[in-house]
Design a protein around this nucleic acid. Sequence first.
DNA 1: CAAATAGTGTCTTTAAGACACTATGCC
DNA 2: GGCATAGTGTCTTAAAGACACTATTTG
Lengths: 248, 248
Amino acid sequence: MATIKTPARASALHFERPLVTVDVVIFTVIEQQLKVLLVHRPETASDPFPGSLALPGGFIDVAVDASLHDCALRKLGEKTGLEAPYLEQLGSWGSATRDPRGWSATHVYFALVPAPEDTDATASATSQWLEVGTALRTHLAFDHSEILAGAVERLRAKVEYTSLPAFLLPEPFTLPQLQRTYEVVLGRPMDKSAFRKRMLDAQFLAEEGAIAGDAGRSAMGYRIRDRERAAVFPRTFRSVEGPSLASS
Amino acid sequence: MATIKTPARASALHFERPLVTVDVVIFTVIEQQLKVLLVHRPETASDPFPGSLALPGGFIDVAVDASLHDCALRKLGEKTGLEAPYLEQLGSWGSATRDPRGWSATHVYFALVPAPEDTDATASATSQWLEVGTALRTHLAFDHSEILAGAVERLRAKVEYTSLPAFLLPEPFTLPQLQRTYEVVLGRPMDKSAFRKRMLDAQFLAEEGAIAGDAGRSAMGYRIRDRERAAVFPRTFRSVEGPSLASS
DNA sequence: CAAATAGTGTCTTTAAGACACTATGCC
DNA sequence: GGCATAGTGTCTTAAAGACACTATTTG
């Protein structure tokens, strides 16, 4: 960093700084649909994209936010009241033209949260849960449509080989519920037997007593063993694992 | 973005802006070792971390760089003279404390380049290729050690299921050369037969005449079909492919 | 022909997919 | 018992791994 060539301004840092924001793509599943939380931008004409739908986010507050991650957590908490969701950095988007107010860069996170008990509490006058397909067909403020497309692509890609959908469910949940969540996110049906073998072999679930459904047999409830990280299913070029230790 | 609550500063943008930089982790393979390009920071006492090793990078020039990606390409060109390498965004690191000059955020890219013809042309008084293991054990400026660790982790993870190592070789290359590159990056030997089946089945290589080696039988040379993207090898939850079209 | 390296064939193993089957709870 | 849903078993298939074999080039 900071290879400044003009001696006059060396380490003076007097050049123009871009605007810096953090945006969060918050996913959940409500009524068997993958949804994303969007906010209405203020109608004030002095703000860019007045009234448009946008991802929740905003400027970094250098006095409040210790880090980018903390800033994303703060914004997530402000919108959903949730404290410890699955939160992962998606990437950053920055250019001279994405914000009419000047050169700007945004750091984007994506979060997976269980469906809120009361949908209306999170969906208010200024924010709402939109079905992802609908959201993708909507013109969002700034380059947020492109960012949302990137987030959906990343989510779908990772769902193919990780336990991410488990973070979209309230605990405890059953394997059939988890399977339906996978199917909703990926948009295709999955085989029950293969699905169960895979989930149980991956060792990321802890049993938690039976749960009765609306009809039929009741099912085993599960919790996520480690909410800090998602499980990764076996893939190509077997990465030399084997049982941690052989006896003696 | 920009949900500003204090009416007084609404869209005034008068709050403090963080420093914004772009850093690039440039990998190559030289003499059967995975290397990363590092630069010496200036000895000027007014600069942070004088004399330390650091990742190449620097402040965004809002007058010159159209986007983050362009900025990364510019910095890569300045250091290596290369124009069209494999370049992918790694993520961003930002906090109040990572730079003594103030709240700063850096956008990090990682690049894969073929070994330079003349190593000394890129390794100069201010920059040098360091073996990755050595670099990881070195204290780098800022949080660059952490960033480098993240880049190596991402590279190794993706090498398990993509054709990324092909971008570390000058074209045309042979399958045995490619296999050695995989082995160098992953630090473990691979089976020849399985390796070749996989590479050829993935359809990302184009034949380009035989190449004679130092000894023994000569081998088929290959080029990357599409330098814009890496091939992804088959993974879990078979993503419904099948041959593009059945006859008739 | 020997040494060295490139390339192939065959069998095993792992995990996914298809699909039929059994088990349990509620009316 | 009948329906609905949970959960299991068995066979097939795709692709990785082990490893022995053949092929081509140089000296």
